[in-house]
Amino acid sequence: MRTPVFIVASLIVAAVVYGLARLAGNDYVFFAGYVILQFVVLATAWNILGGYCGYVNFGSAAFFALGAYTTVALVKLPNLAAKYLPEGLASVIAAAVPPPIPVLMLAGGVIAGLVGLGTGYLTLRLRGVFFAIATLALAVVLQTLIVNWDYVGGSRGAYVIRPQVHALTGINYVEYLFVMMLLLSVTALTVARAIERSQLGYGFATIRDDELAAEASGVPTLRLKLVATTISGALMGMAGAPFPYYIGYLEPASAFGLAYAVNSIAMPMIGGTTSWVGPLLGALLLGTLQQIATVTISSAVSLLLVGLLLVAFVVIAPNGLLGLFDKLRQRIGAARASGGNARTGAA
């Protein structure tokens, strides 16, 4: 399938998903669906660096939070402008704020992408392990900065008031956020799929399989790794940008929650890291499972479930569900072939 065809196909699927969600006639579907879609984006973004290049990012929460706090910073801009800028300019800014969600997503994406680029530049020249540890560090540094930054609420957190309905379309605002996240998921999946089939993707694969050999045969490994970190970080930031509107009250502990880091690793690992289908599959399955477990048991138990599944999968099924499917298909194929032989033998 060519990329334009894929975009059309996935938009149709997205429209069907939206239609079905509307048919359910319950706002909770949008609340829960938003979280699952957010994980689709995060898992896909993580996989661009983790699955394609083989570099582990433990700091998904940091990139996600960067997007979320970019939104908070932009929404609070009029307060700052009223204090320091001349009145005319301040009223211009007040009129432009809050910007629409797609603009916020772009802004969050740019900031998170730049931070990804910077982190990558500092650490990607070393062994891969150091990058992983540095991303762990990044999350804590950023959280400390945010906690000490009063403008975005500091440790107390910040309120972002969610309108009841979206002004342009007249639909419920949560529903609108759901649609935005749905479109972002389509974007993320398209990007991941396009990378997989491009020269860029082959470059990433050489890094994953044998970086030294790739370097020796002239693959510009550092530049490719920086591209991957930037794209991956930007998508995570975009996923975080609408979050303040969704949650209504953003505090550092929730924006930097370990759940984001764990989920964005566990979902691709469980789904399968070799193709864009894996993170999607993992996010849909784990996301739904967590929503159900959170409602019926407790959120702590649902997190425990994710952790246990992650450990179990990396130990028992290293290639995730996709690997299991492949094995199953091979086994069926082999059984069919041997069954055929037996029949011809009997005849």
């Binding site: 392990v129 880091a261 690793i265 566990a266 690992m269 997190l303 425990l304 952790g307 990396v314």
Partner: peptide, 14 residues
């Protein structure tokens, strides 16, 4: 490299 790290991360979390 990849899965070993994820394994320990999972252990930490669990």
């Amino acid at each position: 490299a990849l899965r070993g790290l994820a394994f320990f991360f999972g252990l930490l979390f669990v």
